[in-house]
């Protein structure tokens, strides 16, 4: 017998308690138990980024994380980014720059980009950064967003959307 496991987790500001199968991924827990279907199951193997969520301030692939291991964590999904009907700056930028076609990867793209902006503020380096300064912003964005694939190939507009919010920090 393999026991169910208690979980207490905060998602988009709301606390949830559940008894769950330890095999359940954070992605499946959000989609199936909380009915948060913004995060998408693309590859389910950490290769496409469609499942990206922000956990305790850091973006992760929710498909590669067991829900049970997130006891007490604070999770943000795409559903948690807008304030009521006011979209976040990045959400507006994705609309304005036509940064998607089918939209399947978009929740992951926007969660990923939201965390990216915080990483820039925090001064986290990327492999294209020099020791003391960032590369050109578009180059930083392309590298830092490499964990989010877009099968429609909307990359140019995705970079433009993120860049319009990130400004020129290089």
């Amino acid at each position: 017998m393999h026991a169910m496991h208690p979980l207490r987790i905060t998602v988009n500001g709301q606390e949830h308690r559940a008894d769950i199968d330890p095999r359940r991924s954070l992605l499946d827990f959000a989609r199936d138990s909380l009915n948060l279907t913004g995060p998408k199951k693309g590859c389910d193997h950490g290769q496409c980024g469609a499942c990206t969520m922000i956990v305790n301030g850091r973006r992760i692939n929710s498909c590669l994380s067991l829900a049970v291991s997130h006891e007490g964590d604070e999770v943000t999904t795409i559903e948690g980014l807008a304030e009521g009907s006011d979209l976040s700056a990045l959400q507006r930028a994705f609309v304005e720059h036509d940064a998607f076609q089918c939209g399947f990867c978009t929740p992951g793209q926007i969660c990923s980009a939201t965390a990216l902006l915080d990483e820039l503020k925090e001064g986290l380096p990327s492999v294209v950064s020099s020791p003391d300064k960032l590369a050109e912003m578009d180059e930083e964005i392309r590298e830092r967003m490499s964990g989010n694939l877009c099968r429609c190939g909307a990359y140019n507009n995705i970079v433009a959307a993120i860049s319009s919010v990130a400004g020129d920090k290089s």
Partner: peptide
């Protein structure tokens, strides 16, 4: 990879980490 001591005195380690995977994976 972001630790200031590591970046200053062991840059090969910071570089190697940043050459690997994606930000989502490195965060976990």
């Amino acid at each position: 990879a972001a630790n200031s001591d590591v970046r200053q005195n062991y840059p090969v380690l910071s570089e190697a980490l940043l050459w690997g995977a994606t930000q989502q994976l490195r965060n976990k």
